[in-house]
């Protein structure tokens, strides 16, 4: 798309059984921050694609959408990347945003680059920061080498400037009482027709761990070593009312099946008050997901572990000795004072 008559920021709203996902709502909020630095204070447009999704309009508005484009049609009842990409591309062509943001979820990663191709524009993936420079240029900061290096990406000659961002990188904003302008848009999109068919969608039944509000996160790395060790760590995390999370090797080892709790470039970014890590080496792939933590405490038996450089407090020790000691303390307290109010 060329540069003529482009205006505002468009955010693709991804939806699941619970409504618009946090990742998208965060981006709507962030678009409001970006627009304050843009000329003429343009509008933030949310695009909702789905079937029977009218109730989501108020959610998008409350999180900062000035305008909502409703693409409500039974053909979108089941997610199909080709149909959704065609729909989003059609919306971008019609409403011509300067910037188009997509969550870097699994489906966002399918739809985003496809739309960028359809519109002949550039896209920066997995941005860790999005900002408007003083000269008005939109700057997309992307990680390379697992976050060890960051680079600015610009897309001056094409529109919309597209970017994806992972959940948890920016925060949601609430705009109480905000009312959005609503437009219905129902272009005739066909995707790849019968060359691509959904046989079945198998939903996950397990309840997911939510990390967005976790104040204390206890992370176990490959250094935990065994399933028994892992269970011990999780027990301590429970006593602390913390949420346990993992590194990729710990997940691969099968000690936990909660893949949504993997922290890092291919997992989630977290912003707890405290990150407490055990047996984590501190690879850039992992640490780029914890830089938002208020306090970082790590335990590793290797005094040269890179995790220590990015920690506020370091403990050079076998993890188990420390976990045992914390657990013993906590169990002693709860045994003496079973009523937490008097503890």
């Amino acid at each position: 798309m060329d540069l003529e008559n482009c205006r505002g920021i468009m955010v693709y709203c991804e939806i699941d059984v619970c409504g618009i996902i946090d990742n998208s709502l965060e981006l709507i909020g962030h678009a409001n921050t970006l627009k304050e630095k843009m000329e003429h204070y343009p509008e933030v447009t949310a695009v909702i694609i789905g079937s029977d999704v009218g109730s989501l309009i108020t959610v998008a508005a409350r999180h900062g959408a000035d305008r909502v484009i409703m693409m409500d049609n039974p053909r979108y009842r089941v997610y199909r990347p080709d149909l959704y990409s065609d729909a989003l591309a059609a919306a971008a062509e019609k409403y011509r945003p300067e910037i188009l943001l997509v969550g870097a979820s699994l489906s966002g990663e399918e739809i985003g680059p496809t739309v960028a191709m359809k519109l002949h524009t550039g896209m920066a993936a997995h941005c860790v920061e999005l900002k408007i420079r003083d000269d008005g240029q939109f700057v997309q900061v992307v990680p390379a080498f697992g976050g060890k290096v960051l680079g600015d990406i610009l897309c001056p000659g094409f529109r919309p400037q597209m970017a994806s961002m992972k959940a948890g990188m920016v925060s949601k904003r609430i705009f109480e009482g905000k009312v959005a302008e609503i437009e219905s848009f129902d272009p005739d999109v066909r995707g790849f027709g019968d060359r691509l068919q959904v046989i079945e969608t198998i939903p996950e039944t397990r309840k997911r761990v939510s990390l967005s509000n976790a104040e204390l996160v206890v992370t176990g790395g490959f250094g935990i070593g065994t399933q028994e060790g892992w269970d011990k760590l999780e027990h301590m995390a429970e006593l602390l009312h913390g949420v346990s999370t993992c590194t990729r090797p710990a997940l691969d080892a099968g000690w936990t099946d909660k893949e949504e709790t993997m922290v890092g470039t291919s997992g989630v970014a977290i912003k707890p008050k405290v990150y407490l890590g055990f047996g984590v080496s501190g690879a850039a792939h992992h640490t780029c997901g914890i830089k938002g933590a208020g306090l970082i405490i790590s335990v590793n038996r290797d005094a040269n572990a890179p995790i220590f450089e990015v920690s506020d407090f370091k403990v050079v020790s076998d993890w188990e000795a420390i976990v045992n000691a914390i657990t013993a303390r906590l169990e002693a307290t709860s045994a003496v004072c079973p009523d937490p109010d008097r503890a």
Partner: peptide, 19 residues
């Protein structure tokens, strides 16, 4: 369509006080 701008290493170092 995209152009690469500046590159930098994020400084994530913290005080690293030993307990």
């Amino acid at each position: 369509p995209t152009q690469a701008g500046e590159i930098y290493s994020p400084d994530m170092s913290r005080k690293s006080e030993a307990l």
